[in-house]
């Protein structure tokens, strides 16, 4: 465990927490892509299948449970509790365009051809693209609430910090995980355009709106 990993996990936790705060305080999930949130719930479900079979640490187990809970509560808020406020007309990203290649790739490029390993690989590939329906929705409506941009910033920062963690682990432990690293780089690249807008607009007190 190194500082980049801890900060990455905390950033991830803060992102999910900010999203729940936004929905709960405004009693609205306007501007949030339900499709992205379903994908994240699927990511955690398929990745943490080892929750009861592979004990790593108390920290690891607790974080997995918290992440799963946050993901499912968010989906519940969007599709049940506050579904009237859900902007379904703008959440039109075609999930099959992500799921078909990701399923195909997880069968083709994995570490071992076992059900849990293929599902773990699927979760890594899916996470790298799971934010696309959300980014697509923002580009379609041309705007995002400020708290939603904070959510996206910390969600992007989390994977960027993991990149630093992987460099650190390679240098100190000679640990590497090429599937995670390549997917993590791809995932971080998807946020670059958003990071630019966040720094140039949101941090200067302006609302994020696209021309």
């Amino acid at each position: 465990m190194n500082v980049f990993r801890i900060l990455g996990d905390l950033s991830h936790l803060l992102a999910m927490f900010l999203l729940l705060v936004k929905i709960w305080r405004s009693k609205s999930c306007a501007g949030i892509s339900g499709k992205s949130q379903i994908l994240f719930a699927l990511v955690f479900t398929t990745r943490y299948l080892d929750l009861f079979s592979n004990f790593i640490s108390i920290y690891n187990t607790v974080m997995k449970v918290v992440f799963l809970l946050c993901a499912y509560v968010t989906v519940y808020m969007i599709y049940w509790k506050f579904r009237k406020t859900f902007d379904i007309e703008n959440d039109t990203f075609r999930l099959e365009f992500l799921l078909v290649p990701v399923i195909g790739l997880s069968f083709l490029v994995n570490y071992s051809y076992t059900p849990t390993e293929v599902l773990w690989t699927f979760s890594i590939y899916l996470e790298s693209v799971a934010i696309l329906p959300q980014l697509f929705m923002i580009s379609k409506t041309g705007e995002a609430e400020t708290i939603t941009t904070h959510y996206l910033f910390f969600l992007g920062l989390y994977r960027a910090l993991y990149l630093a963690n992987w460099i650190w682990r390679y240098q100190t432990e000679n640990f590497y995980d090429q599937i995670s690293v390549v997917s993590g780089v791809v995932q971080t690249i998807f946020y670059c355009d958003f990071f630019y807008l966040y720094v140039t607009k949101v941090l200067k007190g302006k609302k994020l709106s696209l021309p």
């Binding site: 996990d9 997995k64 992440f67 995670s180």
Partner: peptide, 10 residues
């Protein structure tokens, strides 16, 4: 060490 299949990250 190629820590494949240990998956100790979140």
């Amino acid at each position: 060490k190629n820590a494949i299949s240990t998956h100790d990250e979140l």
